[in-house]
């Protein structure tokens, strides 16, 4: 999931200049073509490889088998893949929202006070060095193993630190001259936060949020490994793997991957809409 490659899309943001409609699509096609070729090629090699191994090992089912499995188990009783994806996605997105909100609030509070920031940032760095995910069983115990909130909280904690650290950085790394400028206007501290610091932090926020989409899914799924309700991806992965139903395991993993990619893309689209002025979002001209 974390291997999603970020590239600037050509001809975005409404398309600049007098480029024709078809010209733009040709350019986009050419831009995406390598990615599409690699994707299709990988699937093809995988399929051939899996077919060749068929009957000897069942650890690696062919793509065609996975698609078949997805269809067969979408709403069956033992491995309800459709409901599982929904359940896991709910936990992950809930955790994403909670963790992001907390991260932003703490960043806003800490950026206002230099001392608090000086204390909090080392804490955040230390905290991000701890493998928080190892605490998943504890979270299950604290919030109730059957309560989806325990998974949500795991995801939220994972999301919290990068969001907080990045947003704090964005709020404080404002050009010194910009602050002198607002000082010369006798601007209130709150106006500086609203008109300079927050806009300055938005690109940092979106960078963290893209990372956080992946983290929230990891948090939710790993927490599910340690027990809880059955209709979630993590449980299906654990149970199907221990029953050697690897086609189901792979199908569940694929659904997790798809969820990650889709949420990532939604955030990337949001970023494009909210900060079109940022260097990373400008289409090459």
């Amino acid at each position: 999931m974390s291997a999603v490659v970020v590239r600037t899309r050509p001809g975005g943001a409404g398309g600049r200049g007098q480029e024709t409609w078809s010209g733009r699509w040709v350019r986009r096609l050419r831009f995406y073509l390598p990615a599409v070729v690699v994707f299709v090629g990988t699937l093809a090699v995988w399929q051939v490889f899996a077919n060749a191994l068929a009957g000897k090992v069942t650890v690696l089912p062919a793509p065609s088998v996975i698609v078949e499995t997805l269809r067969n188990h979408w709403d069956d009783a033992r491995y309800p893949l459709g409901a599982a994806m929904q359940g896991t996605l709910t936990e992950a997105l809930g955790g994403l929202a909670l963790g992001t909100l907390a991260g932003v609030l703490v960043a806003l509070a800490s950026a206002r006070f230099l001392t608090a920031r000086d204390i909090l940032l080392p804490v955040a760095v230390a905290a991000s060095a701890i493998p928080i995910i190892a605490m998943a069983p504890l979270f299950n115990a604290w919030f109730g193993i059957l309560n989806p909130l325990s998974k949500m909280m795991m995801a939220a904690v994972l999301v919290f630190f990068p969001v907080m650290a990045n947003v704090t950085l964005g709020l404080v790394s404002v050009d010194k001259a910009a602050l002198e400028l607002t000082r010369s206007y006798a601007s209130s501290e709150w106006a500086v936060v609203r008109k300079v610091r927050i806009p300055n932090a938005l690109p940092y926020f979106f960078t963290a949020l893209k990372l956080a989409t992946t983290l929230s899914l990891i948090g939710a799924i790993v927490a599910e490994y340690f027990g809880g309700q059955r209709n979630v991806l993590g449980r299906i992965i654990v149970e199907s793997a221990s029953s050697l139903a690897f086609d189901v395991t792979w199908a569940a993993i694929m659904l997790g991957a798809a969820s990650g990619i889709v949420t990532y893309l939604v955030v990337a689209l949001l970023e494009r809409l909210v900060i079109p002025w940022h260097a990373s979002q400008r289409s090459e001209q």
């Binding site: 002198e180 206007y185 006798a186 938005l202 002025w277 940022h278 260097a279």
Partner: peptide, 17 residues
């Protein structure tokens, strides 16, 4: 505080957004 000053620096210090 009475806004008697207008400042221009060596860098324009404009806001991208």
């Amino acid at each position: 505080l009475d806004r008697d000053y207008g400042m221009v620096f060596q860098a324009p210090v404009l806001f991208d957004w």
